[in-house]
């Protein structure tokens, strides 16, 4: 089993990892000849299934496995991976490979940095011995800038047998009632986080939010470009309303039964209800999300992709985050978040 690649887009990879790390500690990583899949299924909260086209972040990508389809399945702790990638931010080159040390399998990052020490004059030195000493060495090692320092970061991992991942399947949901492009995630997250805080501050006395999990926010969308976030507590009722958002057209080729399927699609029916002002009570598909979990999901905003939210009323919310490919011929990189709706 062998895997080796050079990382060409360290910033995307770092932000990608950071987004996943907010949801869970460990990712199931599946490597094959085409792409790299990261899946995080936390004990509680939303799960994410993501596909990174190998060209999106890697170059000189080598994989060799005895498993069918030339795949490698790993369990990777996200926090150490994120930290390892962070140390490559200012490097000149970074490589990742699967290796083993002391019998522990590792993802080893090798980061090359150019030497950072431009010889700084130490003007405040007042000890003549030191000054003299320094001059000697500076004089002697005049060309010190050209060397490279190598940093290796070893992330401990586990290798998974194909059988052990057979039972894990990506969730399948019914056709969504509403699909809508989310507004700027930074704004949405900021407002959502305020709502969550508002809910927490009045939670103690109202017993709001059943069970031990945190406060719930109500998120609704309609087929007329409206998105609504609302919250009720004893102390207040608050809602934020976005209008003028885009409801992307469905591609008949991707809907079962083509044009007929489209005509009977739930979103087509939803289109007949509600309006662009978002003031009516009709035509909304609503889900209830846990505030903190929702905030963690929205941290994917750092990747800057286009986000389409699919509402299955009272059931689930699915977010598709499309990363911008940097060139033609690249495979599609997309993160899919599955968020369960809590009952009212």
């Amino acid at each position: 089993m062998r895997f080796r690649a050079s990382i060409t887009n360290i910033h995307t990879f770092t932000k990608f990892t950071a987004s996943l790390a907010t949801l869970g500690h460990i990712a199931w990583v599946r490597l094959d000849e085409k792409d790299v899949r990261f899946t995080v299924i936390p004990e509680n909260g939303s799960q994410v299934w993501s596909v990174l086209a190998k060209d999106a972040v890697f170059d000189t990508y080598t994989i060799q496995s005895a498993a069918p389809g030339n795949t490698i399945n790993l369990e990777v702790p996200l926090a150490p991976l994120q930290r390892a990638l962070k140390s490559a931010q200012n490097g000149t080159a970074a490589n990742i490979r699967l290796t083993k040390k002391d019998n522990i399998p590792l993802l080893s990052l090798t980061i090359t940095t150019s030497t950072m020490n431009n010889p700084v004059p130490h003007g405040t030195q007042n000890d003549t011995g030191v000054e003299e000493f320094r001059e000697e060495s500076v004089d002697f090692f005049g060309s010190r800038q050209d060397r490279e320092t190598v940093v290796t970061q070893d992330v401990p991992i586990r290798v998974l047998a194909p059988a052990s991942v057979q039972g894990i399947h990506e969730p399948v949901c019914r056709e969504p009632d509403v699909h809508i492009v989310l507004p700027n995630l930074m704004q949405l997250k900021s407002i959502s986080d305020r709502f969550t805080r508002l809910a927490s501050s009045s939670k103690s006395k109202s017993g709001f939010g059943a069970g031990s999990s945190g406060p719930k926010l109500e998120l609704s969308g309609n087929m007329h470009g409206c998105l609504r976030l609302s919250l009720s507590t004893d102390a207040m009722r608050i809602k934020s309303l976005w209008t003028g958002l885009e409801n992307p057209e469905l591609d008949p080729d991707h809907v079962s039964q083509g044009e007929d399927g489209l005509a009977n699609h739930p979103s087509t029916r939803m289109k007949a209800m509600g309006d662009e002002t978002g003031e009516t009570d009709e035509g909304w598909a609503t889900v209830r999300v846990e505030g903190k979990d929702w905030g963690r999901v929205l941290s994917v905003g750092r990747l800057g992709g286009r986000v389409i939210a699919c509402f299955c009323h009272d059931h689930a919310l699915i977010l598709y985050v499309f990363l911008n490919g940097e060139g033609p011929g690249e495979g599609e990189s997309v993160l899919t978040y599955y968020i369960s709706s809590y009952s009212a």
Binding site: P77, P80, R83, L106, N117, S137, T149, V150, R158
Partner: peptide, 24 residues
């Protein structure tokens, strides 16, 4: 070395510096 615990193992970091980057 204990199975699952392996994933909780902290990152191991090695930094390789040319001795010429030292003053001494």
């Amino acid at each position: 070395q204990d199975g699952k615990e392996v994933l909780k193992h902290p990152l191991e970091t090695a930094i390789t510096i040319h001795v010429e980057d030292f003053e001494e």
